[in-house]
Write a protein that binds this DNA or RNA. Structure first.
Lengths: 194, 194
DNA sequence: CCGTATTCTCTACATTCATAGAATAACAAT
DNA sequence: ATTGTTATTCTATGAATGTAGAGAATACGG
């Protein structure tokens, strides 16, 4: 009997190599030959695991989104109110090398999503998730049905998305410390509208 | 003597066709043949005006940035304080078809800038401009050297950038009205920290 | 040590596309 | 009209790259 490979695990490995590659080089530089080489294989070896380039990209984006979500679930779900919001935002904000790379991938992803409705839908689903979480935590903090809860929620999300972009494009002007300060300002404003 | 073409004007025309093309189809779909056709020319005709595809893209991005800047200068520069900030933000926020298209281009641009330091530098220069403007207006509104002016400024910029992304990727959840409400919330917070 | 199922390598093919450059057309001045 | 210069078209070339698939390599049960 032949060499046996755990296909799911192999797929996982490939996806991890892919996301690192994209974070480092960008999607435009990603071709299947170089990627296979980076994963330690040769030209056609990835095809059995991902039939097309697009399938691989989609899996990679899902992987990154999942990683963020899992961190949120691990660190924010057990908290309430403003503390939960802070923990959530800290998992999303690009404060360390890992999350900066995730932000880079996110920007690439948004660009692709402009042309592919399926990717845009995947993104919209994540945003829905975020809104649901924030609604709960803002409800705990401000009381249910606070008049401004919706604006606060959406502007916080927009702030987080903008931070992903600016931290990656204009790193000098957007240190982690600066982002944390901005987040604190947002949270402080929460107290003022209570 | 031969047919005379105003090269600058021709370049301008080409850039305008290009930005409309990108807004409609996305950068990935943009190839020089189709673009030339859209501009009413045939295959190689654009080369004398823009030697390479990249040169054309760069000119197009500069054109869009200039357009926004000019609107800001026309509408916000004669105002002061919070009113100026509001006018500025309204020129940047994707509130109508034109600005939604500009947001689309911005997302494409950010994606490219991840791989090309020159484009990132161009973006950083615009962000510097924005910061300078906001510093002035925030100074007028909050008084010079207000302790939180920096956070407010940067978080406002991040909000504006995030709004560009979310309005284009998740249009259903980010109507113009919603964005205006979020902006008003930001401005209202300005009053509270005075 | 052999046979077989699976994995992987490697070459090849098809397509897309930017770019070059020769050929042609358009035009103004003489 | 003729001519010379510029503008534009059109075909060709070469590079990059996704994808396919034959065959080699591999690992494992007998």
């Amino acid at each position: 009997m032949p060499k046996i490979v755990d296909h799911d695990q192999r797929r996982q490995e490939i996806v991890e190599v892919t996301w690192r590659f994209i974070a480092r080089e960008g999607i435009d530089k990603l071709n299947l030959r170089d990627l296979a080489a980076a994963a330690g294989y040769s030209n056609g070896a990835l095809k059995p695991y991902f039939p097309t380039r697009d399938a691989l990209l989609e899996a990679t984006f899902n992987f990154v989104a999942d990683a963020t979500n899992k961190r949120v679930e691990a660190n924010a779900m057990r908290l309430r109110g403003a503390l939960a919001i802070e923990a959530f935002a800290c998992e999303v904000l690009p404060l360390d090398e890992l999350r900066i790379n995730e932000a880079r991938i996110a920007v690439h992803f948004w660009n692709l999503a402009l042309a592919e409705p399926e990717l845009a839908a995947a993104n919209a689903a994540t945003m829905d998730q975020w809104r649901t979480w924030l609604d709960r935590w803002l409800g705990q903090e401000l009381g249910e049905r606070h008049a401004q809860a919706t604006f606060v929620r959406d502007s916080l999300i927009n702030f987080l998305m903008g931070a992903q972009v600016s931290s990656v494009l204009d790193m000098a002007a957007n240190s982690g410390q600066s982002l944390v300060d901005q987040l604190k300002y947002h949270l402080q404003m929460l107290n003022r509208i209570k």
